[in-house]
Write a protein that binds this DNA or RNA. Structure first.
Lengths: 189, 189
DNA sequence: GGCATTTGCCTATAGTCTATAGGTAGATGT
DNA sequence: ACATCTACCTATAGACTATAGGCAAATGCC
C-alpha cells in the first residue's frame, strides 16, 4: 500500500482547485478523497471535518487575494493605486471564482481577526491616503469601496451583466473613474 | 390519516421562513418535511426536487424585494428616490437574511429573464432618470449602484462592519450622500 | 540491522439528505 | 354508492459526513 502523502496544505490546495473547477459548494470530503484516490475516512487524520477544509480554503483565498492586491498597489498612489487595487481584486475573482466564493465563507470572529481580511482593510485605507479623507469619512469610504468591489465581482460572476451588449469591462472602467472623481472632490487637504 | 394540505406555495413560504431562521443552506427537503410533520418523500408530489424549492424561494424573494422597492420609490425622485430605493433594499436584506441569500441563488437564464430581477433593473433605471445620464453611462451607473447596494448588504450581513465602533448605519448614509452628489455632478441636462 | 512506536490509510458502520417506485387511504365527482 | 384521483405513505438506494478500531508502512532508537 503506497501512501498518498496527504497533508492539510495539500488538501486545502486541492480543495481550492476543486472549488475553481466545480464551484465552492461542490467541495466535499468525498470529492477530495476521490481526487487523491483515497477513502473519505482517511481525510479525517488531516482535517477535523468538512468545516475545517472550507475554512482553510477561505483563508488561503483571502491570503492570495491580499498578496495580489499588495503587489498591485506597491509603488502607486491616488487614482493609479485605486485602479490597480480594483483590477487586482476583480481579476482574482474572475480567475478563481471558487476561491473567491470561499473567501466569503463565514468565519468565526477570531479566525476572521487572524485572517488576511485585516490586510484588505489596511490596504483599502492605504489607497485612500491619496484622497486626504479625515475620519470618520475614511472608514465610510473603506466600506463603500469594499461594497463596490465585492458587489461588482459577485454580480459579474453571477452573470448579472450578461444581458446587455455593453461590456462589463466598460462599466468597470466607468465605475473606477466615477469613484476616483467623486473621492477627489471630497478630499480635504 | 389527516392530510397536511401541502402545496408548492405553502412549501415555498415555509422554506423562506426556514431560510430566514436558519440560513439558506439549511433549507432541505428533510427539514421542510419535519416542519409539516410529513415524510420527505411526500414533498416530491409538489416539488420536482430540492433545486425547484430553492428556485421558488429565490423567485419569491426577488418578487418581495421588488415590491418593497417599488413601493418605496413611488412618488419620489432624485435623491429622495435613491435613498428610498437603497433603504428598502438594505432593510429587506436585514429583515430577511435567508431570503436575501436565496435571491442570489443561481437561476438558469430563462428563469432569470422571467423573474422580478428584470423589475429591479428597471427601477434602478427609473431612479437614474432624476440624474439625466445618457447611455451608455446610464447602464454603467445601474451596474455601479447595484454593486454598491448588493455589496453593502452582503458585507454587512457577513459582519464585516462589526469590527469598528463606527456604525454601519452611518457609513450607509455617507455612501448614499456620496452617490447622490457624485451622480448629480455627472448629470448632463 | 532489528525492534518498538507512531501514524497514514484502511474497513465497517451509522446518521442525514436526496430521490424513485409502488402502495393505500382519504377526497372528489357523478 | 361507486369509480377515480391524488396526497401521503413505506421501502429502498445512493451520496456525503463522521466515528471507531485495525493493519501496515514509516520512523526512531539502540
Amino acid at each position: 500500500m503506497v501512501r498518498a502523502g496527504l497533508s492539510p496544505e495539500r488538501l486545502t490546495l486541492a480543495g481550492a482547485e476543486l472549488a475553481d473547477e466545480a464551484g465552492f459548494d461542490q467541495v466535499t470530503l468525498s470529492a477530495l478523497a476521490r481526487r487523491f484516490d483515497v477513502k473519505p475516512a482517511s481525510l479525517y487524520s488531516h482535517l477535523k471535518n468538512s468545516h475545517e477544509l472550507k475554512t482553510r480554503i477561505a483563508l488561503l483565498a483571502l491570503e492570495e487575494l491580499a498578496d495580489r492586491v499588495a503587489d498591485a498597489v506597491a509603488g502607486r498612489a491616488g487614482r493609479d493605486a485605486l485602479t490597480a487595487f480594483a483590477n487586482a481584486y476583480r481579476d482574482y475573482a474572475r480567475a478563481h471564482p471558487g476561491r473567491y466564493e470561499a473567501a466569503r465563507y463565514r468565519l468565526d470572529p477570531q479566525t476572521a481577526a487572524a485572517s488576511a481580511g485585516v490586510r484588505h482593510a489596511q490596504m483599502t485605507r492605504a489607497i485612500l491616503r491619496g484622497y486626504d479623507l479625515a475620519e470618520p469619512d475614511q472608514t465610510h469610504a473603506v466600506r463603500m469601496l469594499g461594497s463596490v468591489f465585492h458587489g461588482y465581482a459577485t454580480l459579474e460572476a453571477a452573470g448579472a451583466f450578461d444581458h446587455t451588449d455593453i461590456a462589463a469591462q466598460q462599466s468597470w472602467a466607468w465605475t473606477l473613474d466615477f469613484l476616483d472623481t467623486a473621492l477627489r472632490s471630497r478630499s480635504t487637504p
